[in-house]
């Protein structure tokens, strides 16, 4: 089985976000980025289901963080990494166009990606890519088993209810959570991979416009609802007022 895992570099929300001078994007100077956490789950799930002889290929559009994402994926157990040059990661439409070109003709049985990312305003990558490629897709997948060209997946609804589906391969799956916490690759291992492994390169062309145009970005008004308390004594008074003690 050949499995592609699509990776995206996103701002780390632990950081404080600020609007840039143009007022339509976030200020990325000094901002820390990381692998989209759902993509990390997609990679983990791919590594979990891969048996001997299966191939797990990590793929990312060239840009900041691409080498780090791909070398880390290989250090975790991916068979290879492909850097896509000439594409754009500026929105989901562009990502999907680039990935579709790269995946076409690659004979992948499964294409896994994170269910969503923190900035995918123009749509979630999995279903957009699947529609571009004419493949079936299930999003918000939290368990996956493959047997005889069919994937059995669970898709999370709300209220803790999940639905089980069978999906004919090849298919695209938007992964919500892997069966285990994504593994950690030590820095020494990543460095070793970096020195001993060459990333494949593939040129992808074409950008696709998303059709929605961002005209403003702002921090939502915070504290609007909450009465902010300065000390714990005030909090205790409120708790006691609510009958909690």
């Amino acid at each position: 089985m050949k499995i592609a895992v699509l990776l995206k570099w996103v701002p780390d929300l632990v950081e404080e976000l600020e609007v840039d001078d143009d007022g339509i994007g976030i200020d990325t100077d000094d901002l820390k980025f990381k692998l989209n956490e759902f993509d990390d789950h997609a990679l983990e799930e791919a590594l979990q289901i891969a048996n001997d002889g299966d191939e797990v290929v990590a793929i990312a559009i060239d840009g900041d963080g691409t080498e780090k994402m791909l070398y880390t994926a290989i250090a975790k157990g991916a068979s290879s990494g492909i850097r896509l040059t000439g594409g754009s990661n500026s929105n989901t439409a562009n990502l999907a166009a680039g990935f579709a070109t790269a995946l076409d003709g690659g004979n992948y049985d499964l294409i896994l990606t994170g269910v969503q990312s923190v900035d995918d305003l123009d749509g979630q990558l999995g279903p957009i890519l699947a529609a571009n490629m004419g493949l079936p897709c299930v999003s918000v997948v939290s368990s996956l088993n493959v047997s005889g060209g069919v994937a059995t997946v669970t898709k999370e609804y709300s209220g803790g209810i999940v639905a089980e589906f069978e999906v004919d391969l090849p298919a695209v799956l938007g992964i919500q959570a892997a069966r285990e916490t994504p593994r950690y690759a030590p820095v020494s291992k990543i460095r070793q991979v970096q020195q001993s492994t060459d990333l494949a390169e593939k040129s992808v062309s074409g950008s696709s416009t998303s059709g929605t145009i961002i005209t403003a970005m702002s921090e939502p008004e915070t504290g609007g609802g909450a009465k902010m308390l300065d000390d714990v004594e005030d909090l205790i008074e409120i708790l006691k007022g609510l009958g909690v003690s």
Partner: peptide
């Protein structure tokens, strides 16, 4: 739209 985990409010047009 509520983006970046709810940390940014984004206005877009189409």
């Amino acid at each position: 739209s509520s983006l970046y985990g709810g940390k940014m409010s984004v206005t877009s047009t189409a």
